[in-house]
Every structure is written in C-alpha cells, then in structure tokens.
C-alpha cells in the first residue's frame, strides 16, 4: 500500500482542518492578549474549563447553544479571574497563569467525578453532539470537498480570523490595544485606560478559548480529564510564530493542526511506527518551529536590540 497516497487524501485534510480549529481559536486569543502586552500563560486552563462547561451545559439542558454559550462564559469568567490576579493584584504572570492551569485541570476532574461518579470523565448519554454541516455544491467539488462537512465552530473559527484581523488592525479598540501593548506608560500618558484594555483582551481570549474547548468536547460528546492535551501551549506558540498577525497565526495553526492530523493518520496507515513517536509529533513540530522562529529573529534583530 502506498503510504503517501493514503496520507494525502481528502479524509486526512478534513481531519487537519478539524485539528486546526481549537489551536487557531487559541492562537487568535493569544495574539490579542499579546498585542495588549499580556502573555496569556493560562490558555491551557481556559481551554479545559471551556471543554468541561460545554459538556455540562449541553448535558443539563439538552441544548448545544446553551452548551457552547456556557463554555465561552466559563472560560471568559476564568480569564477574568486570571486577569484580576495578574493585572490588578500584580501577581507574577507566570505563577498566576500556571496556577490557573493547575486549578482548571484539578477543578474539572473533581467536578466530573462529583457529577458522574466516574473518574476523570463526564458524559451525558442523551446529549446532542455538534453536527457536521455539509456545504451544498462545495462537497462535490474535487480536491475541495474536504472543506465541507465540519461543525459550525470550525467554520466560525475561520470567520474569526478575518474579524480578529479587522478588530486588531483597523478598529479604534485595536489601535489602542496595540498602543497599550507596545508602550503602556506612554499609553497611560495620553489617557488610555491601559488596565481596562488589557482586561478586555484577556477576557476576549477567554471567550475564544471557551469556543475552542466546546469544539473539542462537543464533537466528541463528552469531557475527558486533560483533554486539552497541551493545545493551549501550542496555540500560544502559534501566535508567536505567526508574528502577532491573524493570518500568520492561522498559517501556524494549520501547520500544527497538520502535524496532529498526520500523526493520527499514520497510526492507521503505518501501524509499525511506534505510537509514542507519533503522539509526540505535534509537540516536536511545535518545538522545532519555536526554535527556528527564535533563531531567525535573533539573527535578524542582532543580539543587543532584541
């Protein structure tokens, strides 16, 4: 069997798109906070929180709309707490962020056990899952058919690339956001509400992370302990490699999504490759991308002007 032919098929690309979605949403959020001068270390925790709240909301009401909304609200609320500790109480951003991540992982695991009695997972048997929507016409076009058959959140993520790009680079809020992130002291001097803009950026990234969490858990139809699987970190890296632009973040996200998709696909098509290696592939690619990126940057800027 020809492995290459099998790897580059429509199903694979469809998977890649699906794998890209959460990373893309997280990367967009990370880019917004980064532009406001806040490094969003808490993305991983925000993602887990959203994934859990999505399942809970859907399970309790039977409504996907409520589920997605509760995922976004839960992550947004946790983001607000993170922002409060980091910006208002002036906690060290790394410590506060790592604490947020640890809290989210532990709290969701515990809550899942409390509710379901099972360890580390939460599933409602009769709860709906996100439907795959076929796009008429597009689904019959050769080579482009893989673009069809995704959930509403997958499509929304790509619409958000454009919306985020507009907001950050064309809107008044975006201009102020970038000013605040570049030189907060100067921004304060001309009377911009620096803290409030930073709060807004963190909460927006929380809402996006919630959406990413909902995509993870509501397509699967349940919450599994630590189902974020490091995507929060990969999203953060994608925004950095994407050079702080929406389009760049999207390209980087596709790269990481592809790594995950290919790893998954190789498990089936090349069963003799060690599974551990395949699972490590997305993280390896992340690491390589980060190293390559920082190397190219330090070269360009010169050691002293970084």
């Amino acid at each position: 069997m020809n492995v290459l032919a099998e790897v580059f098929n429509a199903q694979l690309w469809s998977d890649v798109l699906r794998m890209t979605t959460p990373i893309l949403l997280l990367a967009l959020g990370a880019m917004i906070t980064d532009r406001a001068g806040v490094l969003n270390i808490a993305l991983e925790g925000l993602l887990v929180f959203g994934a859990f709240a999505g399942v809970l909301g859907t399970g309790l009401t039977g409504s996907l709309v409520v589920g997605v909304a509760s995922a976004m609200l839960a992550s947004g609320a946790l983001a607000l707490v993170f922002a409060w500790f980091a910006l208002y109480l002036r906690g060290n951003i790394f410590i506060v962020g790592l604490a947020t991540n640890a809290f989210a992982a532990a709290a969701t695991t515990y809550a899942a056990w409390l509710i379901s009695g099972r360890e580390g997972s939460l599933r409602y048997a009769q709860a709906p899952t996100l439907a795959k929507l076929e796009v008429p016409l597009l689904k019959d076009v050769p080579f482009l058919a893989f673009l069809s058959g995704h959930t509403i959140i997958d499509y929304a993520a790509w619409a958000l690339v454009i919306i985020v790009a507009f907001v950050v680079f064309r809107s008044r809020f975006g201009l102020r956001l970038r000013a605040v992130g570049e030189r907060p002291v100067a921004a304060r001097a001309i009377g911009l509400p620096v803290r409030r803009i930073q709060y807004a950026a963190v909460v927006i990234s929380g809402l996006l992370a919630g959406l990413a969490g909902a995509q993870l858990s509501l397509t699967l139809g349940g919450f599994v302990q630590n189902m974020s699987g490091g995507r929060g970190w990969i999203g953060l890296v994608a925004s950095i490699v994407g050079n702080g632009t929406a389009l760049g973040s999207a390209v980087a996200s596709v790269l990481f999504g592809a790594a995950e998709g290919v790893a998954n696909s190789l498990q089936i098509t090349a069963p003799n490759l060690p599974a551990q290696l395949l699972f490590a592939l997305p993280y390896l690619i992340t690491l390589v991308a980060l190293v390559a990126y920082s190397a190219s940057r330090s070269r360009k800027k010169g050691v002293l002007e970084a």
Binding site: L175, R176, R178, A179, E182, G191, L192
Partner: peptide, 13 residues
C-alpha cells in the same frame, strides 16, 4: 509608539 504610523500616533486617543 514605534510600530504605529505618524498619523496613528497623533490621533491615538
């Protein structure tokens, strides 16, 4: 703000 344009710097706020 070095990364912003002259016009953006002036009208900011």
């Amino acid at each position: 703000f070095p990364s912003l344009t002259v016009a953006e710097n002036i009208v900011l706020g």
